[in-house]
Simulated assay, not measured.
Amino acid sequence: MSTNDTKLSRESIAAAALAIADAEGFASVSMRRVAQELGVGTMSLYYYVKTKDDLIAVMDDALMGEALLPSIPKDWRRALTEIATRTHDLFLRHPWALVSMLSAPPGINAMRHMEQCLEALAGTSMTAQQKLALLATVDDFVFGHALREASADGAIDVAFAKAQMATGAFPRLAEVFGKGRIPAQRDRFKKGLKVLLEAELS
C-alpha cells in the first residue's frame, strides 16, 4: 500500500468527490476521477466504496453531516429555524445536490439530522403525526426555495421587472413592489420560514 493509499478513508473519498462536483459538476464524479484527485490508483478506492452507488451514498452522508447542529436550542421554533437555515445553506453551497442526490439512500447523518429535528419538537404537545407533517412541510419549503435560488431561470431580473411595471400594465405589482425593493431571496427565505413556523398547526 502506497503512502497516499494509507490516507484513504470513506470520509476523504467523499470530500474529494464533493470537491469535484462543486468545481466541475456532478457528471464529472467517477471512481477514476476521484482516484485522480486523491493521487491513488482507482482500484485502491474499492476497498472503501464498492460501487458508484456506494460513492453517491458516502457523498450524501457527508452533505447531511453539514446540516447537523452542534447543539439544539430549547425553543422549538428557533431550533427548526437553525436546522432549516443550515440545510438551505448547504444546498446553496452544493446546488447540484438538489437533484443529483435524490436517489441516495439515507445514511447515518441523515438519521442524525432527523433525530435532531424530532429532538427540537420533543417538548411540544404535537402528536407524532403532527411532527412528521410539520417537518415534511419545512423540508419542502427549504428544498423548493433552495432549488429556486440555485436556478438561474428562477432569478428575478430586477431591471426588467421595474421597466415592465413602469408601463402601467401591472398596477397591482407596481403597488406592491414599485416604491420599494423587490425582496432578496435570502430575506424571502427567512420571512417565509418564520411565517411557516408561526402558523397554527391544523
Rank of each mutant, 00 (worst) to 15 (best):
H145Y: 05
S125I: 02
H94N: 14
S71N: 12
L80Q: 09
K190Y: 11
S125G: 12
G107S: 01
S71H: 11
T42L: 00
V138S: 06
E200H: 07
L92I: 11
D157K: 03
L173I: 10
P70D: 15
L132E: 03
A120F: 10
S28C: 12
N109G: 05
L90G: 13
M101C: 14
L135G: 01
R172Y: 14
A150Q: 02
L18G: 03
R33A: 08
Y47F: 08
D187L: 07
F26W: 15
I13C: 00
A14G: 03
A67M: 10
T127C: 03
R93N: 09
E115L: 08
D157I: 01
H88S: 10
W96H: 07
L196S: 08
A79I: 15
L38N: 00
D75M: 12
V138Y: 12
L80H: 12
I156N: 11
I156M: 07
T42S: 05
G144S: 13
L102A: 11
P183S: 11
C117N: 14
K50Y: 11
K191P: 07
A67C: 14
G39P: 09
F177W: 14
F143L: 05
K191Y: 15
G123Y: 04
L90N: 13
F189Y: 12
T137W: 00
K191R: 15
F160P: 00
M1R: 09
P183N: 09
S151I: 02
M59K: 12
D157E: 07
L147W: 04
L193R: 15
C117F: 12
R148S: 02
L69W: 12
M64S: 09
K194A: 15
V195D: 07
A104H: 04
K190E: 14
A174P: 03
M1T: 09
P106S: 05
T3M: 11
R33P: 00
L102H: 06
R10W: 02
E175T: 09
D53F: 09
L90K: 15
L132A: 06
R78S: 15
L118Y: 09
E24T: 12
V34E: 02
G180L: 07
L134F: 11
I13G: 04
R78W: 10
A146L: 13
L193Q: 13
P105R: 10
M31S: 04
N109D: 06
D60S: 13
L68I: 13
Y47E: 02
I20G: 14
L92A: 09
P95E: 12
E198S: 08
F177T: 01
K50R: 12
A136R: 08
P171T: 09
M31W: 06
W76T: 09
P171M: 11
P171G: 10
A17M: 10
L68A: 11
I13V: 03
L55A: 02
A35C: 01
D54S: 08
M165A: 02
G144W: 07
V40R: 07
L98G: 06
L132S: 03
E119Y: 06
A120S: 14
G41N: 03
L45N: 01
F177I: 06
M114N: 10
P105K: 08
D139I: 01
L18D: 10
D5C: 04
A150N: 02
E37P: 03
F91N: 11
A15V: 04
M31E: 06
R10S: 00
V40W: 07
F189M: 07
I56K: 11
D5G: 05
L68V: 07
